[in-house]
Amino acid sequence: MIPSLFAFRFTRRLPELLLIMGLAFLTGALAVYMYTPERLDDLRYLRGEMPELFTLLGIEGDSSLDIHLMGILYGSLLPLFMILFQGSAACRLAAMPLQDGGMAMLLSAGHRRSAVLLTLYLNLLAETALVLLACAAGQAILALILFQGFSLLALLRLCLGFFPVMLPYGAFALLMSMWLGSVKGMRRACHAVMLATLLFTFVSRLPGWTRSLRFLSPLTLFRGTELASGSGGWGAALFALLPAAVFLLAALRSFSRREV
């Protein structure tokens, strides 16, 4: 890792990051707000009308705030938010510099290509962690205001368990940046593939042959029920580190051979 590069990139992206963190905070707070009795009645009514759609989105119950959040937030809203965020952040960190000459500037110093790329990946991880924390803060603050007796620890476990599941996406976005180079092409390909995994996650929740599609998406490694109850789920979440490592190694290899 190159500390000066990490700090510079981080501070330069901070204004945009704060905006995204604000959005994540509101998303988290909104998800908690949906657990208030009036909104919950609306949701129950809609679920009664469109049960398949709710199953698809992963909204399975509302017996507790954790279960509600696991469905409405971690089931569809947050994965979509984070996928779009990671794709665009990787684009700004890697694909754009490759196109506008910024990467050539970074490589005109005595640092290895691998060190430069790993630093950019760490930037991406730090940003991802902060956005997730902002979302968790939004949930926790509104839950503290509106509800009594909820488990703050359960919220934290959900957030922490979701983080490793996001790692393969960041590494994949970097790999796409290295392969494609052009900003437009990278954004399109990256978002198409990542959104396809989200779609696989959705349809894998339906009964039938589509269940086997869960193997095509790292998102299915997020075991919300187990994480919220504290009975496990970490093994599956940490298994996501494997595809993350594979994508990252492929990105490093591609970058080491790439002409800039």
Binding site: D100, G102, S108, G110, H111
Partner: peptide, 22 residues
Amino acid sequence: RRHQIMKRAACCPAVPALEPNA
């Protein structure tokens, strides 16, 4: 050996890509 060479060399491209927000 680029990384070793660039510890002893410096360059300025035709259009330096600067950080827009800096």
